[in-house]
């Protein structure tokens, strides 16, 4: 593709490591200051694009169609969304609303039928197999509803695997794996296999694995759907803490309204389209208004 996205013209290109510097800067000051600044203006991000210097994920008119016999199913229909670095985004919507498809498109796990996905200004569609693998390895951490821990490996092996893929020497990967598993509260479960771990513990392993290479983006597709409420809340809190500490952008889909409290912005999807995008504060107002009417 010779045509560059017009929204990107004239913007400085950043190296992958620049993100770490940005994160450090935020950490030294007010952890929430940057997120607040990015969230302000919320829905109307088309109004002042120049302010959105640090956006990480951008989809432009992304559609994904499946053919089912004679019918064409529009799993995603013209979705355009901008997500800033360091934001915690929740995506709400009934099953079949296109949440998972949007995740897969953003995460480079499937190709959209039309439209483009940009991650840190990189058009995912233009990447070859090796570059896609690099993107999945270094830029994005995935958390799935069904954990997808590799069954034949221990917790520690699962967490070190992406670091080994990234080229880290074995002992360094191991040290960091131990450290990060300790961070998610599994310091005493390093050598357990998934069979010996509860659902919540497996999801913690998945979180540790997703954060192992210090990604820029965490994509969590219904991470709490298979967990009880308390464990689910713990998982969400853990992701929020990592989001705050490391400045990672978190995009998390959920069915549960109780899980929204941690998010900076909430995106509602319906029939493959974005129905509404709102700041957390707006949502609280809506909820209280609704309860007033009752």
């Amino acid at each position: 593709m010779s045509e560059r996205n017009p929204l990107l013209s004239g913007r400085p290109l950043r190296s992958p490591d620049a993100r770490l510097d940005a994160t450090a800067a935020v950490d030294s000051g007010h952890p929430d200051a940057r997120a607040e600044q990015l969230v302000k203006g919320g829905v109307d991000w088309f109004a002042d694009l120049d302010r959105q210097v640090d956006q990480t994920v951008m989809t432009s008119n992304v559609s994904k169609h499946y053919r089912m016999g004679e019918q064409i199913i529009k799993a995603l229909d013209d979705v355009t969304v901008n997500i800033a670095a360091g934001e915690y985004i929740s995506i709400m919507g009934p099953s079949g609303s296109g949440k998972t498809t949007l995740f897969n498109c953003i995460g480079g796990l499937t190709k959209p039928t039309s439209g483009n996905v940009f991650i840190d200004e990189i058009d995912v569609a233009q990447l070859d197999a090796n570059e896609l693998a690099w993107l999945r390895c270094r830029k994005i951490g995935y958390i799935f509803q069904s954990y997808n821990i590799i069954k034949v490996m221990t917790a520690l092996e699962n967490v070190t695997l992406p670091m080994l893929f990234a080229g880290l020497p074995g002992d360094e990967a191991q040290d960091r794996g131990v450290e990060i598993l300790g961070r998610v509260g599994l310091g005493d479960r390093l050598l357990h296999t998934p069979k010996e771990l509860s659902g919540g513990q497996q999801q913690r392993v998945a979180i540790a694995r997703a954060f192992a290479n210090r990604p820029a983006i965490i994509l969590a597709d219904e991470p709490t759907a298979n967990l009880d409420l308390k464990t689910g809340e713990e998982i969400i809190m853990l992701m929020k803490e990592m989001n705050r500490e490391q400045g990672v952008t978190v995009i998390c889909s959920t069915h549960d309204h109780k899980m929204l409290a941690q998010s900076d912005r909430i995106i509602w999807m319906e029939d493959g389209r974005i129905k509404r995008i709102a700041d957390r504060d707006e949502v609280k107002i809506t909820v209280s208004q609704m309860s007033d009417h009752q």
């Binding site: 693998a133 999945r136 995935y142 992406p162 990234a166 694995r209 290479n213």
Partner: peptide
């Protein structure tokens, strides 16, 4: 598929 998601090369 999981290995590919973690950045495993083809």
């Amino acid at each position: 598929g999981t290995i590919k998601c973690l950045g495993g090369l083809d």
